[in-house]
Design a protein around this nucleic acid. Structure first.
Lengths: 148, 148
DNA sequence: ATGGTAGTTGCTTCACGAAAGAAGTAATGT
DNA sequence: ACATTACTTCTTTCGTGAAGCAACTACCAT
């Protein structure tokens, strides 16, 4: 295992990391719950579904997209389904599989909550990234934590 | 609340965010547990203590530094104390307060686990940040999620 | 081809542990 | 004395991994 020491810059980043990993999701989630009664994870699931072809995704696919375990995804899907924001329909090409499909109510709810999410991400994150190449950063983050 | 739409770059960043907020901490923690039997949060606590004046911090201070609730910090401190990695001593200027003090064993454990943490952060994060101004990013992240 | 069976996959249910928040306790300050 | 502060204990919620179940695939024997 490589143990070349960190440069001072990298070291500073490592020390700042808990902010990003622990504080940021809590802060955004708190905004979403307070203003929209829609936790961040549920918002994320709706967002992924809304962008999927035919507004649907297999459960496993959705779990991955939400960075959630499959069992965790089942739980969230139950919550969303009980609220009528998604439906579950059997996959037509594999009878073991279920598709989560976002409903019209789900799309409406997503629309309604969108500005809160946007403002929250701005306030907690984007507003602090002056001078950072955001496009490059976004691309970089896409590759983060790929292997486990 | 401001709802100016996101630029495409910002939008890409927002969509990549779950990686950073959910997958990254899980990945690093998994490495720490697998190779060192020392969860990331415990490592973080030891690291903060090791750098504090007189190797000690008040519980509340430490909780903040670890981005943890006070009750959560109590729990972690109990675990570390049972392992002899920290001690609790009453604060001499406020009898309500406790100082968590890292022991020699704690320092040794931190040293021992350091390379794993370093390698993990490199592998999951730093290695993917080509072209990013890391110094600037570190400074920026320091300001993330300040308000709740 | 046809069917049997072994193994894999997709999802849910169950059992557990981690973290937050509320309520409680003890010491301070005014 | 009363309100506030520092921490712990208690309660509830959230998310994981393991176990369970149903359905699909692959392989072989006939």
């Amino acid at each position: 295992m490589t143990t070349r020491p960190l440069s001072p810059d990298e070291d500073a980043l490592v020390r700042a990391l808990p902010r990003l990993m622990y504080a940021l999701p809590r802060a955004i989630d708190a905004d979403m719950v307070r203003e929209q009664q829609l936790p961040l994870i549920e918002w994320t699931a709706l967002m992924r579904l809304s962008e999927a072809p035919r507004r649907r995704m297999r459960m496993g696919e959705l779990a991955t997209a939400c960075e959630l375990s499959l069992s965790g995804m089942t739980r969230i899907a139950n919550v969303l389904e009980r609220q009528g924001l998604i439906e579950r329909v059997r996959s037509d090409e594999d009878a073991r599989g279920w598709n989560a499909v976002i409903t019209d109510a789900g799309l409406a709810r997503l629309e309604q909550a969108w500005p809160t999410n946007l403002a929250s991400v701005r306030r907690h994150l984007l507003d602090h990234l002056d001078g950072i190449d955001v496009a490059r950063l976004a691309r970089a983050i896409g590759n983060v934590a790929l292997t486990d």
